[in-house]
Write a protein that binds this DNA or RNA. Structure first.
Length: 277
DNA sequence: AGACCCCTGGAC
DNA sequence: GTCCAGGGGTCT
């Protein structure tokens, strides 16, 4: 499941592969994957040039010319791949959109959006509409850019358990299940602790661990799991996980068994000894 | 805060 | 066949 480091890796790779490229043609194989008007989607894109690709929380943001924007959320299983324009209705498995790239030769003349579970969504916007959409969903600041005071104010303003608050994209945008569990372990906080109870010192400590974890994970091109695949293959940060996917195994610090709970509706791995309420 | 929903594939 | 994976929207 792509989270901030995986989405960052994909966006960086897309930017390198596609900046300056014109979208010659686009076809939808599964219209529901487009959350804005699917009828208008293809003509919106035809002839536009990709001027850059970056990340907005867990969204991938394609900057197009003429103040047009394409926002993609990969959710659980979305991915991009390069391939050959589908002839005779033959598409790669789980490919839902094809973007034909100008001045590229087969078999790499097409960008595909693929998504096994079809949870992901693409949205096409003109500039002002993009800003309005980001406001509408209350997308919070990036955890890599936020300062300690703003982080403290946002975390402690929410009632609820700390893990649930970290996963709330309107508090900070980009953390998912893996990096929430890993950062709580690294910082020594119990996932069920009340978010509002953290002191200034504690939120500062937590933020330092979140940022270090995200930077290390980006440096390793993210975590490869059963469902994440980047444009150029997976990352290697899964080898650094200390709690995610390890419940029942022993804590690498205190050697007691890691526990599992459901918090915020998500499977949660933590060390009951090292992470105190 | 929790339940359900959107979906598919892999583990058992 | 049943359960599980879990981002995020929606409803209670």
């Amino acid at each position: 499941m792509p989270e901030l480091p995986e989405v960052q890796t994909i966006a960086t790779d897309l930017a390198e592969a596609l900046t300056g490229t014109v979208i010659e043609k686009a076809i939808l194989n599964f219209p529901k994957i487009v959350a804005t008007d699917p009828e208008a989607f293809e003509s919106f894109l035809v002839g536009t040039r990709i001027e850059g690709v970056d990340r907005l929380g867990k969204f991938i943001h394609f900057h197009l010319n003429n103040d047009r924007h394409l926002l993609t959320h990969l959710k659980m299983t979305g991915r991009f791949s390069l391939g050959e324009w589908p002839l005779d209705g033959i598409w790669p498995k789980h490919a839902h959109i094809a973007f034909r790239l100008q001045d590229r030769a087969p078999p790499l003349d097409t960008l595909f959006y693929c998504d096994t579970r079809k949870f992901g969504r693409l949205r096409a916007f003109h500039g002002n509409d993009l800003a309005a959409y980001v406001q509408k969903i209350f997308l919070g600041p990036d955890p890599l850019l936020i300062d300690a005071k703003d982080f403290h104010d946002r975390i402690t303003a929410k009632r609820g358990r700390l893990k649930a608050v970290l996963l709330n994209q309107s508090v900070v945008s980009g953390l998912g299940n893996i990096y929430a569990d890993e950062s709580l372990f690294a910082a020594g906080f119990h996932p069920a602790r009340s978010a509002a109870s953290l002191s200034r010192t504690e939120t500062a400590h937590l933020l330092i661990h979140i940022q270090k974890l995200l930077r290390d994970a980006i440096a390793r091109r993210g975590s490869t799991t059963s469902t994440y695949e980047g444009l150029k293959g997976g990352g290697s940060f899964q080898n650094q996980h200390r709690v995610y996917g390890r419940s029942g195994q022993n804590c690498l610090v205190c050697h007691q068994p890691l526990a599992r709970a459901i918090i915020a509706g998500r499977g949660t791995s933590y060390c009951p000894t090292c992470q105190r309420l």
